[in-house]
Amino acid sequence: MPNTDTEVLMAGFGGQGMLLSGKILAYAAMYQGLEVSWLPSYGPEMRGGTANVTVCISEKQVASPYIAQPRALLTMNQPSLEKFGPRVRPGGLIIINSSLVPIKSDRADCRVIYVAANDLAAKVGTGRAANLVMLGVYVGLSGVVDAKVTEKIIEKEFSDKVKFIPANVAAFRAGLEEGVNARATNR
């Protein structure tokens, strides 16, 4: 049974595309009939600083879109891991882009996955799609949303930049595979 009542905090530097990954996740959940909210950090911190978004997915109406303790954290940089890592709920999930984050998480009470997202993305197309590798890992691991639906959303999001679709879908699939494999692995 996929857990369809969850909160995901996606964080990175501005321009790394985590807000977009969050939007794709929210869209995919919405198209599956779930209730969603997408709450970004906003303001000057986004310009060159850290950008993060909290996506809530629920079978009933999302109560608070603001979550201090998310069930999952996807992080593209060290400052975000340091800031948000300690806040993840016990038993939660932390996905770390090890291409860019040199440190480890000290959360023994969470499942921590390290993915070389940039390297993986570069291998299948472009390193710039690392955000979609991260999303793929999360979708594969959590099963919160359907992977095929998510791919359709990716195609829609890039519909005015069609040439970027293959690399982004490939990055998502590469991440998805990692996620599905990790899911099959018992801790």
Binding site: K23, A26, V36, S37, W38, L39, P40, Y42, P65
Partner: peptide, 10 residues
């Protein structure tokens, strides 16, 4: 509040 302006919901 600012949240309602900035957040996305269906």
């Amino acid at each position: 509040d600012g949240m309602i302006g900035q957040m996305m919901e269906p």
